[in-house]
Amino acid sequence: MTTIISCIPPALPSTLPVMDTKTVKKVASLARLSMTDQELESYRPKLENILKFVEQLSEVNTDGVEPLSNVVDIALTLRTDTLTDGDLQQKILANAPESTEGFFVVPKVVE
């Protein structure tokens, strides 16, 4: 079995900050993913490798290139303002972990 070792040009010297554990922790919190310190440590080098890998894009000069969000060559179609949906309370709540009297229920939000 042959695995391709590298078909990608080597990355340029890093211009972006490296992933430290503090950053991983912050990102995990932003993404609402609970992580033990051990997990944070195991994610750190993997994320860092991925970021190093994608950094090779910086070697391409993209001045004046318009970013492309979606390739589909059509115009956005619009919907008419007619009532076609809703009135599904039972179905909306059918998969809810917790509900009562038509409401979804979550642990109390303190403001």
């Binding site: 909306i92 409401f103 229920v105 642990p107 109390k108 403001e111």
Partner: peptide, 14 residues
């Protein structure tokens, strides 16, 4: 979100 219906829960209406 309704926060005053229950001591430990919030209720959500979409």
């Amino acid at each position: 979100s309704l926060h005053d219906q229950h001591p430990t829960k919030s209720f959500v209406d979409l």
